[in-house]
Amino acid sequence: MEIDPLIFRLSIFILSIFVGYYVVWSVTPSLHTPLMSVTNAISSVIIVGAIIAGLSGNSESVFNTSSIFGFLAISLAAVNIFGGFLVTQRMLAMYKKKKKDK
């Protein structure tokens, strides 16, 4: 009997929770705000689902109810991707070490 592919996805999911647990505990508390903004940006990888939804229309009609929701989701996720990564970049650029000539 074959194993349901769902079980493989579930394994990836559970193992990723553990990876996340250990990785996030190692994040220094002073970077907790950038952590939130970057997790925000990466969770917008949901855009891959939105793209599939947006492309679900056929060549005669690009827009149907389903693809319109897809396009809306694409733009929302894109706000997050660009906004999230750029604001994280901006914050991280501010963290500086003490200058030598203190």
Binding site: P5, I17, L35, M36, V45, V48
Partner: peptide, 20 residues
Amino acid sequence: LENTALIITGALVGSSGAIL
């Protein structure tokens, strides 16, 4: 969507928020 990138990311973000 049977998408590994989303599953991994979801789990990472989910546990990150929970720890915070």
